[in-house]
Simulated assay, not measured.
Amino acid sequence: MRHLRGNLATTVVTVLVLAVLGVVAGYVWSALAPATRYVLVDGTPHLADPETQSLIEADGWFAAVTGGFGLVCAVAGYVLSRHRPVEVLVGLAAGGLLAGYVAMLVGGTAKGVVQAAGPGGYTTTTSLDLTAYGVLFAWPLVATTVFWVIEFAVTYNQRAR
C-alpha cells in the first residue's frame, strides 16, 4: 500500500506542477501571439480583416510555447525521476494535457479590450482563442517523446559499455 501511495503521489505532484506551469505558459502565449481585430456590429463580432492570418499565428505560437514547456518539463522530469520514471511519464502525459488546457484558458483571458468606437461599430481586439484544438497535444506529445528519447539514449549507452 505504501508503494502505491508513493507512485500516486509522484504522478499527482507532476500533474500539479505542470498545471501551475500552464498558467505561466498561458501568459507567455498571450504576450507572443498576435491579437485578432474584430468589429462589433450589433453585438456580433466580425473580422476587421477577413484575410488575417492572426488566428493561425495564435495556434502556431501556442504550439511553440507549449512544446517548449514540454521539452523543458521532459528534461527536468527525467533528471528528477531516477526511481519512478513510469510515474513521472504518466504525470507528464496527464499534466501536459491539463497544462495545455490551463494555458489556453489563461492566455485566452489575458488580452481583449475595446479600442475605438466608429460608425461601423466598435473596433475591438479579442482575447486569444485556438482554432486548431490539436495544438493542445503539443505539450504532452513533446514531453513524453523527449522523455523516451532521453531514456533510450541513456539505456543504449549503458548497454554498449
Rank of each mutant, 00 (worst) to 15 (best):
70 G>L: 04
94 A>E: 02
135 V>Y: 13
66 T>E: 01
23 V>Q: 04
31 A>F: 06
107 G>N: 11
57 E>S: 13
32 L>K: 08
60 G>Y: 13
123 T>A: 11
26 G>M: 11
98 L>W: 00
70 G>M: 05
85 P>Y: 01
40 L>N: 09
30 S>L: 09
110 A>G: 12
13 V>I: 12
33 A>Q: 10
75 V>T: 07
125 T>M: 13
14 T>I: 06
12 V>L: 06
102 V>P: 11
130 L>K: 05
66 T>K: 04
92 L>C: 02
60 G>E: 11
15 V>R: 01
65 V>H: 04
107 G>I: 14
116 A>S: 14
132 A>M: 01
115 Q>H: 15
134 G>F: 12
36 T>K: 06
15 V>W: 00
22 G>S: 10
89 L>F: 00
136 L>T: 10
134 G>I: 08
106 V>K: 07
35 A>S: 15
109 T>R: 15
119 P>T: 12
88 V>E: 00
117 A>K: 10
127 S>C: 04
103 A>C: 08
24 V>E: 04
16 L>K: 01
52 T>P: 00
124 T>A: 15
140 P>L: 06
14 T>E: 00
83 H>D: 10
106 V>D: 01
119 P>F: 09
59 D>E: 09
109 T>H: 15
16 L>N: 05
65 V>L: 07
17 V>G: 13
135 V>I: 04
80 L>T: 00
52 T>Q: 04
60 G>K: 08
87 E>M: 05
81 S>Q: 02
78 Y>Q: 00
64 A>I: 13
102 V>C: 05
2 R>C: 06
2 R>N: 12
6 G>N: 15
129 D>N: 05
20 V>G: 03
41 V>G: 09
16 L>P: 04
13 V>N: 01
24 V>M: 02
59 D>S: 06
135 V>L: 08
126 T>M: 15
85 P>W: 00
108 G>C: 08
42 D>S: 15
82 R>V: 09
114 V>M: 13
10 T>Q: 02
29 W>V: 12
127 S>D: 11
5 R>P: 07
47 L>H: 03
135 V>P: 03
74 A>K: 05
43 G>H: 10
113 V>G: 07
117 A>S: 14
14 T>N: 02
11 T>P: 04
46 H>D: 08
79 V>A: 02
135 V>F: 12
99 A>R: 04
100 G>L: 08
33 A>K: 12
73 C>T: 12
100 G>C: 14
142 V>N: 03
115 Q>G: 04
118 G>K: 10
87 E>S: 13
55 L>A: 13
34 P>Q: 07
63 A>S: 05
38 Y>F: 15
132 A>H: 09
104 M>N: 11
42 D>Q: 14
60 G>L: 12
28 V>M: 03
77 G>N: 02
82 R>C: 02
59 D>I: 13
71 L>T: 06
102 V>E: 07
41 V>W: 03
11 T>Y: 00
118 G>Q: 06
127 S>T: 09
35 A>K: 09
24 V>T: 03
127 S>F: 06
115 Q>T: 14
33 A>V: 12
8 L>C: 10
36 T>R: 05
35 A>H: 00
32 L>E: 10
71 L>S: 11
14 T>A: 11
10 T>E: 10
128 L>M: 05
89 L>W: 03
12 V>I: 13
103 A>H: 06
116 A>T: 14
41 V>A: 15
65 V>F: 10
4 L>V: 14
83 H>K: 12
144 T>D: 02
54 S>G: 07
77 G>E: 03
120 G>N: 13
